[in-house]
């Protein structure tokens, strides 16, 4: 389920079945060279698409929160607090598995300080996310991630 009117009303009716929250962590910045900015924006687009696909596969048990967006320039320690707060609120609503997804390696180093599980993924090297070849690469990554999520459920 996603953060839109229709899905949220379904969520409210079937709260007891939804125990997994996924949140994409998306950095944003407008300072940098053209190449850096393009990369950053592509990452954001890619992660959003990724999360959407994962949600579609398991929409009855997963809630996809709106993206957690932060300025690339902000110190990561400030954001850790905010992330933990998001996670706390979701836990209070009965979420048992919280997975925060990112392509930004800064988080990997700060993982210990994060309460929810962090899933850092290397950026898939695709030129254009809309062509057929890229779709295949993404498809296989999405499958691996959905398998990982089922592994969490079997704990």
């Amino acid at each position: 389920m996603k953060w839109n009117g229709q899905d949220v009303s379904l969520y409210a009716q079937s709260k007891e079945f939804v125990d997994t929250g996924i949140v994409p962590l998306i950095p944003y910045s407008l300072s940098g060279s053209e190449k850096e900015l393009t990369q950053l924006a592509n990452q954001s687009e890619l992660l959003t698409l990724f999360m959407k696909e994962v949600e579609e596969e398991y929409r009855g048990r997963i809630f996809l929160a709106p993206s957690f967006t932060y300025l690339k320039e902000t110190s990561i320690d400030k954001e850790i607090e905010r992330i933990n707060e998001w996670a706390e609120r979701m836990e209070a609503e009965g979420f048992k598995h919280l997975l925060f997804f990112t392509f930004d390696q800064q988080w990997k180093k700060a993982e210990r300080k994060l309460n929810p599980s962090l899933i850092w993924m290397p950026i898939p090297q695709v030129q254009d996310i809309h062509n057929e070849e890229a779709k295949k690469v993404l498809r296989s990554q999405i499958e691996q991630v959905t398998e990982l999520i089922t592994a969490y459920w079997q704990e």
């Binding site: 379904l10 079937s14 079945f17 579609e56 596969e57 398991y58 929409r59 009855g60 048990r61 089922t150």
Partner: peptide
């Protein structure tokens, strides 16, 4: 038909000749 996940033929364990929904 429960909450809209994707079911798999013989998914999960020991679900021979059945479709299985991994969510619930």
């Amino acid at each position: 038909k429960h909450l809209g996940c994707i079911v798999k033929w013989e998914g999960g364990q020991g679900n021979e000749n059945q479709y299985y929904c991994p969510c619930h």
